[in-house]
Design a protein around this nucleic acid. Sequence first.
DNA 1: CTTGACCTTGACGCAGCGTCAAGGTTTATC
DNA 2: GATAAACCTTGACGCTGCGTCAAGGTCAAG
Lengths: 253, 253
Amino acid sequence: MEYTVNKLAQLSGVSGRTLRYYDQIGLLKPARINSSGYRIYGQKEVDLLQQILFYRELEISLEEIMNIIQDPAFNQTDALKDHYRKLMQKRAHLDNLMATVEKTISSKEGGITMQDKEKFAAFKEKMIDENEQKYGDEVREKYGDDTVNASNAKLRGMSEEAFQAMNNLGEEFFSLLEQAYATGDPASDLAQKVAAKHKEWLMYSWPSYSKEAHAGLAEMYVADERFTAYYDKQVKGGTEFLRDAILNYLGMK
Amino acid sequence: MEYTVNKLAQLSGVSGRTLRYYDQIGLLKPARINSSGYRIYGQKEVDLLQQILFYRELEISLEEIMNIIQDPAFNQTDALKDHYRKLMQKRAHLDNLMATVEKTISSKEGGITMQDKEKFAAFKEKMIDENEQKYGDEVREKYGDDTVNASNAKLRGMSEEAFQAMNNLGEEFFSLLEQAYATGDPASDLAQKVAAKHKEWLMYSWPSYSKEAHAGLAEMYVADERFTAYYDKQVKGGTEFLRDAILNYLGMK
DNA sequence: CTTGACCTTGACGCAGCGTCAAGGTTTATC
DNA sequence: GATAAACCTTGACGCTGCGTCAAGGTCAAG
């Protein structure tokens, strides 16, 4: 089966221009050029294109894709891990942006004068970013690369089964939280179960567990609007309830 | 307090080029131009620049910033809310990417050879895309839209575990096909086992199974160069042998 | 008066294509 | 066998938000 540019374009969902560009930069050359100068692609090229598109969907640059695909000695797993780290950073950055935008909106609606608020937010935003930059190094220094890497590795290395289990646990947790919240008592048996579930869930992503850290996290949930938004979306007012339940469970209240 | 470009640049942390660019696109004009043609900025411009940089940190485009800042009638809150929605979408997209990268990494570390895994993934994609493109209309006419859509959904929604199992089955299948082909007899016991394996494999992606469809697929394999290329790559001349084995298995020959 | 720091206006480059433009080829139709 | 429609080619500009020369004018210090 042979294809001209637009045939292959339709087949793969990209544009003809894209294919000519890939030819131009040497990412995907046609199998041959016919007597009229038309590009002719064969099965091999279709397969290659599929691979390229797969990596492209992961937002890997075409240059890196060339490395991954053309150099068989290239360590693809490392490249992917590297890319994963970049995505994580991007998401952390996005989370910051969203928090700032949220705050800006609510302050605007709250009637605070734009000028002051914005200057303040801009200042804060800078601090967040700087801290982010510093934080990583600092933590590595404090706890050592091993701890940080172990934590990352645990998350990354999680098998599909474990991931699935974690997801199920998460759903179970929210369902329990909803029921427990209905009782209104953070010290109730149900609430204790919720806290226990939460601990179980946590341990999927934490390299080690301590009561203090768990309690700290519970407080952070309430303090951080992103988390309250997250938990309250599932169970209205659930964040504070959850914190109280956890503190109770840990015997810290 | 008056500043030349680089003075203001240092003050605000952006480059001189950036300021000249902002002047060029009309985002931030200097207060005046002195007799030598130098750009001179005043306090008002400093404040404006701060606002601009604030919005820029939120990853709002310069064009939108112009709207927000220059048009007092422009509803800034709505613009921010709109932007917030975009950020949410971006984050959801990022989450998807991260999940995919994670899965790819763990499956690679699980020891599956890259080649096969990727080809298989590509094949899966192709099954959906190509089938839709080329046989979509035909099949949809024959079996109805519901059947086709269900099949695609089943393939796409397949869990990593199921996909893994399907992958293993596929390898088993090819190994059997190789052995059976060596016997030369599409009616041999081995060949029958191959056909059975193929059916098993198929049922991972087909919402329902029928002898007729299975036989039709076998014929299609031979008729379509893409499939013959795929099967023959593993076992030379294997496509026709596979068809015959399947037809035999189904008692249709 | 020279040196060096700082200013100016172009203009190209980056990633990954979209989008004409001007012209050759193939296919279908009359 | 002519003609139109459809499909192919290369070339080149445009988009975003600047970084980075290049070539030349200006200004304060030695």
